[in-house]
Design a protein around this nucleic acid. Structure first.
Lengths: 289, 289
DNA sequence: GCGATCGATACCCGCAGGGCACTGATCGAG
DNA sequence: CTCGATCAGTGCCCTGCGGGTATCGATCGC
């Protein structure tokens, strides 16, 4: 599957082989064997061109998911074995009260293990949780894709529009979504590599982290919708305008749906307000279905 | 991973080896190598007893998910390659208007592929979709576990309580949830093997399909909450009592979250009422994020 | 028409992984 | 206490999978 994904992504046997650290002939044979095994062509190839068949594109999607699951299995087992703390990934902009509150409540629970807070690049949290580099994440609905994850709601807050401080609209006390759309024409929303490793199409500038994002906004190159609580953390050259008719952003705690370690269950129990001090079984409830 | 799952489930190297179709010594070595690779013990074993370590139980859960993903990749690719129709799994009790409507609307769409409707055993739909035996399913919230699946809502309907026609309560025109709980003491809800292959604890009788379930209800051995539309399909010796204060059941169309074939996207587009006749890209929207 | 590019084929080799025979530890019956 | 049954681990052998090198053959640009 690794081999196939490499070829399907490069669409070039030579480059794929190089990426995989093997030579080209065995790669050709491996793909051929896979095709025989599955009883179908996966790639249409001439000596000048390689492209995916429909079956191939299905297998590409499925393989990515499967490989992520395998990698997650190895990483999570390693981390549990090394007795590493639970890794909680957060957006840099989301280190507000909700998270500190949660960690504080968790730390006073009897039997609570350590939690390592890990900030991460923009758009990377969901991937981190899916492939096992992290155990649990703070995410924001409706922006993050929760498929494959269980979650509990931590809170809701309204949205604000971030614009450069010098922007004509910067002094306004409120704005509507319709007006937001107009502003986006001038300074479109930034884009970033999503959980599938793809960069969405669009006019927006490309950002890799929240520092870059803020820089783009401050320079008038981009505007951005964010949860209200991010105001505390903004640079002074960015203004935040409340959006009157935007649906509220829901902050959630999310973790892999098939259940993980007791430590994660413990943290989730704290978040839901369950009393974990009485019974371990109770603490596990959110994960055992 | 297959080897480890087999040992972890059997907790016995000999039986696990037999199940895997290999002999015991290579299995012992394979597990040992896995432990070395991961740098941790996965099983505590004496010559009389085998049990999972904490790392082992984490790996067991993760491996099950990973193996299901790999199996799904193979099955789905095979099915697309064989140009098999999209497989839609439904509960036997859920073949009401919603589904027939959907299929009818889909069949008149230009470019709509064939859809194979497949009834399945109780509690098996989610598993079918997750491991690639089916492409898409009709499920009922809040009873089915949608984690790992995307979905669209098809409709809501109220719940009815199913009891034997001869039951004292059978003639009532309405019932409350509190009363339902009392009835459940006499004739508990049936249980079945869930998506993890486990049988939940409880007093209820065990059912494998909806025929058995109805038989149990008709015999007064069980009672059961179901969507209202199932009344059309009930045997005459079962009565359906509307439950006045139950939250409505939401019927949804659900499919694997990471996206699948165009054919599934097409069916989903029909369900959401999108106009797929104008542009294929529009038809794909629900799956491409 | 020629050379460069790139995937496929032919052939060879090392070792991962499986089978068989056996060892050693543990527990229960008598 | 002893003996035998049970069951995981070890040693040894061998097959074949998966990788490498050399080369072929098709295709496209100049």
């Amino acid at each position: 599957m690794q081999y196939f994904v490499a070829v399907a992504e490069e669409l070039h046997f030579g480059r794929a082989a190089e990426r995989l650290g093997i030579s080209q002939p065995p790669l050709s044979r491996a793909i051929r064997q896979l095709e025989i095994r599955l009883g179908t062509d996966l790639l249409r190839r001439t000596s000048r061109h390689v492209e995916l068949t429909e079956a191939g594109s299905v297998l590409l999607r499925e393989s990515r998911a499967a490989l992520a699951a395998v990698a997650a299995a190895e990483r999570r087992t390693r981390r549990v074995a090394a007795q590493e703390p639970v890794v909680l990934v957060v957006k840099a902009a989301a280190t507000g009260r909700l998270v500190t509150d949660l960690l504080e409540r968790h730390s006073v629970q009897p039997g609570a293990g350590p939690v390592r807070l890990e900030p991460c690049g923009i758009g990377e949290q969901v991937r981190s949780v899916r492939d096992g580099r992290a155990d649990i994440a703070i995410l924001h609905l409706p922006y993050d894709d929760l498929t494959g994850l269980d979650h509990v709601e931590l809170g809701r807050e309204s949205q604000v529009m971030l614009v450069a401080a010098g922007h004509p609209a910067a002094s306004r006390t409120s704005i509507t979504l319709a007006e937001v759309d107009e502003l986006l024409l001038d300074a479109p929303a930034p884009r970033w590599v999503d959980s599938d490793g793809r960069l969405p199409e669009g006019p927006g500038p490309v950002a890799r982290d929240h520092g870059q994002l803020q820089a783009l906004v401050a320079l008038g190159q981009a505007t951005w919708l964010a949860p209200e609580s991010c105001r505390e953390l903004l640079r002074p050259d960015i203004a935040a305008i409340p959006v009157s008719d935007a649906e509220p952003i829901t902050t959630v705690l999310a973790w892999p749906a098939h259940g993980t370690s007791d430590a994660v269950a413990h943290l989730v129990a704290t978040a839901t307000g369950a009393d974990t001090s009485t019974s371990n079984a109770d603490g596990l409830l959110p994960l055992e279905r």
